[in-house]
């Protein structure tokens, strides 16, 4: 069978795309599969800035079967899959981390964010840095605007659910981040 996208090369990779409840299967050649994955990655990024690498990584572990999930945000990854999450930059898996309690590189903080944040909160009581700022902060280190928006959404939800303790915590965290960003401007 020829690739459904370019119509020239032999199709080697079935790509399954799930958006909401709908899913489509496309048979693609290697080159097109990569390009499509890249596009999907961008789409996810615009939705969900901190997670694409993590999602891509999970599914690239199944060779010749590229799948992209657009799971609703609330849906958490299932535990056995968590163990297999690998940092795209350094290759450390979550189970490696559990063995040594040592992360592999600075990127791991993004890769394992969902697991790390509750852990950091348990250890330190908070997750937002309040101390020293280096004289040069690279753009990559900045908190993206939409992450703060995301936190604000969570805050509203917490208020709706009448979880005031959680709401107060989020309010303080948002405040800390916003005042710091104002200062830097």
């Amino acid at each position: 069978m020829l690739c459904e996208r370019c119509g020239k090369e032999e199709a080697t990779v079935p790509v399954i795309k799930i958006v909401g409840g709908e899913f489509t299967v496309m048979h693609l050649c290697d080159k097109c599969a990569e390009e499509v994955t890249g596009e999907i990655k961008k789409e996810i990024e615009s939705f969900f800035p901190s997670f694409p690498d993590l999602f891509l990584k999970i599914f690239s572990d199944f060779p010749s079967f590229h799948t992209e999930f657009f799971t609703p945000f609330e849906e958490k990854i299932k535990p056995p899959e968590v163990e297999e999450i690998k940092c795209p930059r350094c290759g450390l898996s979550y189970s490696d981390f559990k063995k040594t309690f040592q992360l592999g590189c600075s990127q791991c903080y993004e890769t394992f964010k969902e697991q790390l944040e509750p852990m950091l909160r348990r250890i330190h009581g908070g997750i937002i840095h309040k101390g020293k700022v280096p004289s040069k902060v690279p753009a990559k280190a900045k908190v993206p605007k939409n992450e703060i928006e995301e936190m604000k959404k969570k805050l509203q939800e917490a208020v709706k659910r009448e979880e005031y303790e959680e709401a107060a915590r989020l309010r303080d965290e948002i405040r800390t981040l916003e005042t710091r960003q104002k200062k830097q401007r």
């Binding site: 309690f101 600075s106 903080y109 950091l120 250890i123 997750i127 840095h129 710091r180």
Partner: peptide, 13 residues
């Protein structure tokens, strides 16, 4: 290695 959110990033959390 620094992040505006978490501060200085270390091997152990």
């Amino acid at each position: 290695a620094y992040s505006e959110k978490y501060g200085y990033l270390t091997a152990c959390p």
